[in-house]
Every structure is written in structure tokens, then in C-alpha cells.
Design a protein around this nucleic acid. Structure first.
Length: 200
DNA sequence: CCCTGATTCGC
DNA sequence: GCGAATCAGG
């Protein structure tokens, strides 16, 4: 199979959507992730953001440069390379009296990228119903591992009541580094609920 | 061990 | 141009 126009198109689209090379390869079929990555490089779109990128970062290591640094792109692209729902600590401290109508909410809302095709990018705010649904769905397929059966690559999400018999750990394959499986990572890293600090 | 992308180099 | 092998990292 060769790189037909169509396949290249799919490759570009998916790559820009933030899909991993293996996922793209799987989608295209008949290619390995290496092939995809190789093509990506030949196409000159190794970086997933806009065409412009002049980080001019001090690179003291001409060799052994693997990790791709996500430089701030001035372009209007709503690039959302966020692949990790890392818990953030937004400036949540504005408990003023109800007579101080500060447009904080507006500012906070501005954090969210402009309306763009970013369906697979869960906002760092609130637990999406989807995520919760996914969790309960996953619990059905859980391996129901005991504490001792957990390894470094099993989801350590507890299910049930630890004081009861029907308690287990998810046990599904966890992602690298993360303690939970894909589904649980989504809710585990829940930064903070939209706690309306409605102080009286 | 699972995964990611980056690079090299024979084809 | 292509991509397997390899490398570097999480």
C-alpha cells in the first residue's frame, strides 16, 4: 500500500487532531506507526501546531533530542496538544461580597479555547458526563483485582466498599506513568469541581 | 511492560 | 520516498 492522496489526507487530519502515530496507522491499515511517523516527518509536519514556530529555545543538545517541546504558538490556531488532564490550579479565590460583580467568570471562560473542533479534548473543568458514563461502563469490564494483584501497569481505581467483600480494583491496563486506566484517569485527576463558593 | 515520537539508513 | 530498526523518553 502506498501513500495515496487520500491516505495522506487522513494522516494529516488525524495528526493535527492529536492522534498518536499508532492510532493513525491502525486507522489507515497496512502500515505501521513507524511508517506513519516517517511520513509525518517527510511531510514536514512533525510538529502538530501551526506552520509557524520560532521558539529559538536554547538547545544545548544537538544530539539525543526526542521529546517534542510544545512552544507557545502565537498563531490563532486553537492548538490543543493537551494530552494529559493534569490537575491545574486556576486562580480560584474571588469570594467577594455579593456586591462585587467582578467579571471573573468571563475571564475564566476565556481560558477555554474558542469554539473549534475539539471534541476529544475534555475541558479541565468539571467531569464530563461522558467520562462518568465511561467509568461505570469500564467497571463492568474490570479485572476485579485484589490489592496484591495490582502491578505498576494495572489501574488502581478502587471499586466498591473496601469494608465489604465485593471490593476490587479496576485492574485494566493503565497508561504509562499513570496509576489508572484511560477511563479513570479522566475522573481521577479531577482538578476541582465548580465549587461555587457562595459565601452566605 | 506498556506506550509515545525521533532518527537513521538500506532499500 | 519509504519504513524497519533503533533510539530516547514517559
Amino acid at each position: 500500500m502506498s501513500w495515496t492522496d487520500e491516505r495522506v489526507e487522513t494522516l494529516k487530519r488525524m495528526w493535527n487532531e492529536g492522534q498518536s502515530a499508532s492510532q493513525i496507522a491502525k486507522e489507515l491499515g497496512n502500515v505501521t506507526r513507524n511508517a506513519v511517523i516517517g511520513k509525518v516527518h517527510r511531510l514536514g509536519l512533525s510538529n502538530r501546531n501551526g506552520p509557524e514556530a520560532a521558539p529559538a529555545a536554547p538547545e544545548p543538545a544537538p544530539r539525543a533530542a526526542a521529546a517534542a517541546p510544545p512552544p507557545p504558538s502565537p498563531a490563532p490556531e486553537p492548538a490543543a496538544p493537551a494530552e494529559e488532564p493534569v490537575a491545574e490550579a486556576p486562580p480560584a479565590e474571588d469570594a467577594e461580597e455579593d456586591d462585587a460583580p467582578i467579571p471573573m467568570s468571563a475571564a475564566r471562560r476565556a481560558i477555554i479555547p474558542a469554539g473549534q473542533p475539539l471534541p476529544p479534548q475534555p475541558s479541565a473543568n468539571e467531569i464530563s458526563p461522558e467520562a462518568l458514563a465511561k467509568v461505570s461502563e469500564v467497571e463492568k469490564k474490570s479485572k476485579k483485582l485484589s490489592l496484591m494483584e495490582l502491578t505498576e501497569r494495572t489501574c488502581k481505581w478502587p471499586v466498591g466498599d473496601p469494608a465489604k467483600e465485593d471490593f476490587w480494583f479496576c485492574g485494566l491496563p493503565a497508561q504509562a506513568g499513570k496509576p489508572y486506566c484511560e477511563a479513570h484517569v479522566g475522573v481521577a485527576f479531577q482538578p476541582m469541581s465548580s465549587r461555587r463558593d457562595r459565601r452566605r
